[in-house]
């Protein structure tokens, strides 16, 4: 693996020339994911993994590329491999791709199970079963199939099956029913989650912390967690959401 220095969270775009060492892709956010925000500092080394390589050696990241509309987002645009690229790497038995896929969606699957009225323990089992089902179907998934939607459908089905098996309703638990409204909610959630994965690490971390953390942390807590000035949180969250909307299609409804 190549190792390159990190310059204040900005990574440079490497020129790709076929056959050269530099044809290795730029660092993937995966390499920063456990340390970004408060862990990686100027001069730190991060590892480059072949996982970043797309088809024909094309890098799949946009690290350091300034965004035309929001120049300040340059370091927020580190995007990792697409879900389909991860699936392909998993098919090739790359354990790191699998770990990244699990890391990407385990909270979504667990949360979907919980929202369908099972206990945390049952939701943990359902999370495992859902990912194992993904593994068993990995050869059948096509590029156009959305991984988040697929996982959410399986998790919901397993959760409802679990509830039927236990033959008891748990009073006091808010359960999303199978109504059209609920299905629309799940579909919107899948679209948002998939969009977040394409958003880039910095933006994704911020949006998840502000909007998807059940603890609803304050701006101050989020600023501290992400190592950012509190005054930048509000403007940045707007830029990130604007970017998310743009990624999902400016005119598309959620």
């Amino acid at each position: 693996m190549l190792r390159v220095p990190v310059d204040e969270g900005r990574s440079r775009v490497l020129k790709i020339s076929p056959g050269s060492v530099a044809s290795r892709p730029p660092p993937c956010h995966r390499n920063l994911r456990r340390t970004s925000g408060n862990g990686v500092r100027r001069g730190d080394l991060v590892e480059i993994s072949p996982l970043n390589a797309g088809k024909n050696g094309r890098p799949v990241t946009a690290v350091g590329r300034p965004h035309a509309d929001w120049p300040g987002l340059a370091r927020d645009t580190e995007v990792g491999p697409s879900d389909f690229e991860l699936l392909n790497a998993c098919r090739a038995r790359d354990p790191e791709a699998w770990e990244l896929l699990v890391e990407r969606y385990e909270r979504l699957v667990f949360s979907v199970a919980l929202r369908n009225g099972v206990t945390r323990e049952e939701a943990a089992d359902i999370t495992q079963m859902t990912f194992i089902a993904l593994l068993e179907s990995i050869g059948k998934l096509r590029e156009e199939q959305r991984v988040a939607s697929w996982l959410m459908s399986v998790a919901r089905r397993l959760a409802w099956r679990q509830r039927r098996r236990s033959e008891r309703e748990r009073l006091g638990l808010e359960v999303v029913s199978g109504s059209d409204d609920a299905i629309a909610t799940w579909e919107r959630a899948a679209v948002v989650q998939e969009g977040l994965q394409r958003l880039g690490r910095a933006c994704r971390d911020l949006i998840e912390a502000l909007y998807f953390d059940p603890a609803s942390p304050s701006y101050a807590a989020v600023a501290e967690r992400l190592g950012r000035p509190i005054g930048g949180i509000g403007p940045m969250r707007a830029r990130c959401l604007q970017r998310l909307r743009s990624l999902l299609g400016e005119d598309a409804n959620l």
Partner: peptide
């Protein structure tokens, strides 16, 4: 924006136990 905020409110992301990730690593 309203749709986004509604979606986020309706599905907060809970962290599963760390054992899930370990088990899935072994399963893989």
């Amino acid at each position: 924006l309203r749709d986004f905020l509604t979606t986020a409110r309706e599905l907060p992301l809970e962290e599963p136990p760390a054992t899930v990730r370990e088990s899935l690593k072994e399963a893989f």
